[in-house]
């Protein structure tokens, strides 16, 4: 049987299996740590930095930090929350996020995080980078203006042989997601929808599916991201 360890988040005593990642362990204890790049069931990546916490006084990403006995974690503090907010603001100026015209508006996790933090406007100047919209795939559109480089699509969307449909190409500032041309021809509508859903923002859109739900009924129209976790009763 796995060993259970005791740790503390903002002074609250928590229990989890030794070695579980902090993000997941917090969740099981009814504490939401915000994240953008993590998706339950996928190997953690730690690319967005939104889940950063102070673990025994050091800044660590909660999605990649295994829990250990006696860990002291700061998460919901002014310092950490302000830092997370500034990271979210950076995402908004670093891409071209036109929420009013975006098909994913109301479902977008970046937008939902900004709502949670009540960000009225980013403190940084908008960069308006030049990005492409690629619409020549059979089943999907990739809008690079919106991509936050979380790599969820690459990590999650695979064929029956375990081969990824998506990949990164180039490096640094020029990095972007591509869909393998030959694999794209074999992509089913179901996989396209799966890709759309795994993408936290509106960078991957299955063709001919947009704007089906009226405003007011979308995922984050009435419900704050993370509030489901915060509602979980802990023993």
């Amino acid at each position: 049987m796995a060993e259970v360890v005791r740790f503390f988040i903002d002074g609250k005593e928590c229990m989890a299996k030794n070695g579980d990642y902090l993000l997941q362990a917090a969740k099981e204890n009814g504490i939401y740590i915000p994240t953008l790049c993590h998706y339950d069931g996928l190997k953690p990546k730690g690319s967005c930095r939104v889940c950063t916490c102070k673990v025994n006084g050091r800044l660590m990403t909660a999605c990649t930090t295994p829990i250990a006995e006696g860990m002291m974690i700061e998460s919901n503090t002014l310092e950490i929350e302000e830092m997370r907010k500034s990271i979210i603001e950076l995402f908004f100026v670093d891409g071209n996020h036109f929420c009013p015209t975006c098909e994913k508006s109301g479902y977008c996790e970046l937008q939902a995080l900004a709502y949670r933090y009540r960000i009225t406007a980013p403190r940084y100047p908008f960069l308006f980078p030049l990005k492409r919209v690629v619409a020549d795939y059979a089943k999907i559109i990739i809008d690079h203006n919106r991509c936050v480089l979380c790599k969820r699509c690459v990590r999650a969307i695979k064929d029956e042989m375990g081969k990824s449909f998506f990949a990164y190409r180039r490096r640094g500032q020029n990095i972007e997601v591509i869909l393998d041309k030959r694999m794209s021809d074999r992509m089913s509508f179901e996989i396209a929808l799966e890709a759309e859903n795994i993408c936290p923002v509106g960078a991957i859109m299955a063709k001919r599916t947009a704007f089906t739900t009226p405003i007011g009924y979308r995922k984050f129209d009435k419900i704050t991201i993370g509030s489901d976790i915060e509602k979980i009763k802990t023993k």
């Binding site: 908004f92 071209n96 036109f98 929420c99 015209t101 406007a121 308006f128």
Partner: peptide, 18 residues
């Protein structure tokens, strides 16, 4: 006070920025 997305970040007209 910036009122609305266009005042805040350019909004729809700014889609011509590229």
């Amino acid at each position: 006070v910036a009122l609305g997305e266009c005042a805040i970040m350019g909004g729809l007209p700014a889609m011509r920025n590229g």
